[in-house]
Each structure stands twice: as structure tokens, then as C-alpha cells.
Amino acid sequence: MSGVVWSVSAALFLLGLAGVALRRQLLAMFLGLELMVLTAALALGCTASLSGRGEGFVAALLVLAVAAAEAVVGLVLILRVRSSGRPAETQSLRELKG
């Protein structure tokens, strides 16, 4: 598992993490989220190809499928927030606290 794969996937993962943590719009955060998941899938795939163990590919594929399902739900929620008249930003989701 060469260092190149790890440095790339780590960088991408941190990029996605930053996207989720720092952005205010929900959609931007969602993109960050998807980036993180796909980076993991990428890492799995590359590792599998390098080590020749087929399991990694199976895992990557399944991860993609599950991520897709998750994405659907995420988008639905963001749309519901928009349709309820609030801007799709973290600031509008402040009522529950304490």
C-alpha cells in the first residue's frame, strides 16, 4: 500500500471534512460528506488493487451503493428545509439547544 494512495486519500478526506465542518450552506456540507465517503471507497479500491485481494473492490462497490441511498435521503431533507421557507443554512437550524 504505497504512500501515494494514502496521502491522496488522506488529503481528500480532510478536504471533505473541512467542507462539512466549515461551510454554512447545507448543500455544500452535503457535497463534503459525499466527498469523504467516496474518498474512503477510493482508498478501499486502490488498496485492493495493490494487495491483489478482491474483497476491497466488493467493499468499494457496496459503499457506493449505500452512499447513494444515503445521498437521496440527505437531499430530501435539504429540500424539505428549503420548502419550509428557511434558507438551507446551518443558521436557520438553531431552535433545539440547551
Binding site: L17, V20, A21, L22, T90, E95, K97, G98
Partner: peptide, 17 residues
């Protein structure tokens, strides 16, 4: 402690990280 839960989504993610 309850003040820490400021209700913000980003803050909870920071704590997660």
C-alpha cells in the same frame, strides 16, 4: 454543560471531529 449544546449543527460536527 447545557450551554455547550449551542444548537448549531457545525459546532456538533466540530465536537465529533
Amino acid at each position: 454543560g447545557s450551554a455547550m449544546a449551542s444548537g448549531g449543527l457545525s459546532e456538533s460536527l466540530w465536537w465529533l471531529m
